[in-house]
Design a protein around this nucleic acid. Sequence first.
DNA 1: CGAGTGACCGCAA
DNA 2: ATTGCGGCCACTC
Length: 112
Amino acid sequence: MNQPDSEFREKVYSYVAQIPKGRVMTYGQLAALAGHPYAARVVGGIAHWGNPELPWQRVVKKSGSLAEGYPGGLSGHKQVLEAEGVEVSDDYRVDVERLLWWPPTPGQNSLL
DNA sequence: CGAGTGACCGCAA
DNA sequence: ATTGCGGCCACTC
């Protein structure tokens, strides 16, 4: 089986992989969902060295600004997001208030 | 087990 | 608005 990857990383991978196109999530949010609301830095580390197949481009900061260190720089990140349908301002910021996405919360929906 | 690092977050000046 | 500092957690040496 796989290596004993930390549950934290497993969750982060899972959530990031489920972010729908045109939506974004924040590092602190992913960290909180993974079980540690203050481990946003860890999420950043995972984003840098984690599975490159995942859409990390949809992961932004809490302030809405794009992350630093993305291959291609902010300009590259911006263009990728725009290609996904996310509006990015010239200041490399996205409307988190509007595009922020949360995973399906159980119990809220009557459909199991 | 200790120290350093990091695609962050929040607060103070 | 920007800059500086601490903190939190996982990973590596």
